[in-house]
Simulated assay, not measured.
Amino acid sequence: MTQLTLYGTPISTYVRTVRLLLEQAGTDYDLESVDIFNGENQSAEYLAKHPFGKVPTLQVDEEVIYETSAITGYLDSVVANHKFSPTDPLARARMQQIMAIIDSYLYAPVIGTIVIQRLIVPSQGGQPDESKIQAAIAPAKTALEAIEALTVGSPYLLGSEISIADFFLVPIFIYFSQTPEFNTITAQSPKIQAWWQEVSQLPVVKKVCA
């Protein structure tokens, strides 16, 4: 039997993305913590797995895969029989578009700025940098409205079946929804709002992102 080991910080959005897929597929795996906050991801041992020191990394027996899109694509093939990717070519392209928008345009303003300034900085005794937050609102809104335009809904991003795109967006919204900017930025995205009300209550989301 293939041994799957996922390396990463459990609270990382991208680690949670992979775990959502694994849990939804009902697949056994081991989770090995790699703490990015104390520098474990820069250790020689971890850099041998991921030369850029990011999380997560998936070890499959003796093989190693890094980059979340590559990991989820692989797992969708080998443990889920492609059930988390649409069969229709256009719908599959839309899924990949949403994933790319999250990676390239949404993650940085939402997690890298708004969530860090609103949730992390105060938890460490600091004061949020309001100018950074204000500067992040417009690009976050643009990215989210682009996803809104690609969203089918009812109840998932691409229709009636959950996909890798949902696994990418859910962990970001777990943190984003705790900030006061959330309502402002999602105000013009009713399909995304309805989506979040549905997916936030899924048992797998509560298990992985509690």
Results as ranks from 00 to 15, higher is better:
150 L>D: 08
151 T>N: 01
151 T>W: 03
153 G>W: 02
153 G>E: 10
153 G>I: 06
153 G>H: 09
154 S>W: 11
154 S>P: 14
155 P>I: 07
156 Y>A: 01
157 L>E: 08
157 L>N: 10
158 L>G: 00
161 E>D: 15
161 E>S: 15
162 I>N: 00
165 A>M: 04
166 D>C: 01
167 F>T: 00
167 F>C: 07
167 F>A: 00
169 L>P: 05
170 V>W: 01
170 V>L: 07
171 P>Y: 06
171 P>Q: 10
172 I>K: 05
173 F>N: 07
174 I>H: 11
174 I>V: 15
176 F>K: 06
176 F>S: 06
177 S>N: 15
179 T>K: 06
180 P>F: 07
181 E>L: 10
181 E>A: 04
181 E>T: 05
182 F>V: 05
183 N>V: 07
184 T>I: 08
184 T>C: 06
184 T>M: 09
184 T>E: 14
185 I>R: 01
185 I>W: 01
186 T>S: 13
187 A>F: 13
190 P>L: 07
191 K>F: 08
192 I>H: 02
192 I>A: 05
194 A>M: 09
195 W>S: 05
196 W>D: 08
198 E>S: 13
198 E>M: 04
199 V>T: 07
199 V>G: 03
200 S>G: 12
201 Q>T: 12
202 L>E: 05
206 K>H: 14
207 K>N: 13
208 V>D: 03
208 V>W: 02
